[in-house]
Design a protein around this nucleic acid. Sequence first.
DNA 1: TTCTTTTACTTGTCTATACAAGTGCAAATA
DNA 2: TATTTGCACTTGTATAGACAAGTAAAAGAA
Lengths: 237, 237
Amino acid sequence: MAVKEAPSYRKLYEKLRTLMEDGTYQRGDLLPSENELCAAHHLTRPTVRKALDMLVNDGFILRHQGLGSIVQGQPKGIGILSLTGTTSAIGQDNLTTRIIVKPKIISWEQAFGFEINEKEKSMGCIYMERLRLINDLPVFYDITMIPNLNLPRFTSRTFENRSLFEILRKHYQLEVKGGEQKIQAITADERIQKHFAVKKNHAILRVDRRMETNRVGFSFFSQIYCNTSDYSLTGRF
Amino acid sequence: MAVKEAPSYRKLYEKLRTLMEDGTYQRGDLLPSENELCAAHHLTRPTVRKALDMLVNDGFILRHQGLGSIVQGQPKGIGILSLTGTTSAIGQDNLTTRIIVKPKIISWEQAFGFEINEKEKSMGCIYMERLRLINDLPVFYDITMIPNLNLPRFTSRTFENRSLFEILRKHYQLEVKGGEQKIQAITADERIQKHFAVKKNHAILRVDRRMETNRVGFSFFSQIYCNTSDYSLTGRF
DNA sequence: TTCTTTTACTTGTCTATACAAGTGCAAATA
DNA sequence: TATTTGCACTTGTATAGACAAGTAAAAGAA
């Protein structure tokens, strides 16, 4: 069975997106007009417009009647992580990751308050704790729980300085499509005080999330503690 | 000069959205099929589909080929607070709004750290402070700044228990398309302690945001303080 | 020069149509 | 009875064209 070919509006979307991501089109540039894109790719305007609609949705471009499609600087991200995108916005250079608890398989009953179904429960989960530092200053502490479903060699992979999202996408074709989250401001408990080297009563941001993927019924979970006193989370939405 | 009529796909979007928000269509229900909507509203399929596309984008519905458009429980939020948010996610019944500073026109130099351009600066801005209570418990304190640009009768409108976003969308055709935000966990200062009736060192969530709209160059700003100890912010992304 | 008008180009809205492909159920078949 | 097939429905993709409306720069008028 052959893999179904992507629809043409999607191929055009990917092509334009790539050109913006690799810097061929830069912030403030105008994309070719819809009619030019039609001619260049042998498509009709509704099809081209569908691709451009997707780019608007992702925050890559803005369109103005009478003017054209204007390339934006920074695209939208998924929820809070891409807020600065732990990896993308701060700049990968100054971000280091320290594994506190290596990936291991445990049994679970619940995930940060989110419900899990019987299938997930029976499979057990891959558990991991990481501390992320920006310029050697601890800023994120995150706990990740991933259902142990057909992810070969996962526990033996290295997660130092690598994006979990990227590993899931490239090696397992798992793409995060959405999810739900709970956000709270809390005062640091003892464990967090130790990891962040802060005093009692220090305000900390906590985010609990369920990440839904393109694999039906497959979600994973994370709890993130964030010390926002030196680096506030900034980003586009 | 007559107010320009909204395009028909937009009117259909509003109609369907309202029907879902007021509970006429509930989670799990199927919307009428595209062809039925075409017949009922005297439109063609591409137009109807555009309205449905918008609803998918906002997270109100999911569509399945061969099945139909399925109503979702809770819509996506824009960014972190489910911007439809304060009002829709928690349930309008228990949410009351107390105006602390009535809308008034002031001059401004900056907006919560975000840059504003000369045009915006010269126009002055509409300033407002509101406290929102859930079951009589103060949870949100927000400061809003809106450039004073062609918003007739705005300062005389009532904002008690009404969504600012809804007012902007329905009366001024202003739709929030995106923006940027900064999120921090802070400890309550004196003013916040008073409004929330909390002690010193209480952890509070603060969100500074710039909201970009469909009107070119028109942004507005808000700073939101949130006491998350009893109600954590939840939302889809 | 300076201001106004025209023009060419842009995206926005909408119609009408065709066929592909997924879903669920009823009818036909083993 | 259990399984398969077919049908009627759904949304998905794509074409072709028409006119509206906003933008910017060229052309024209003062």
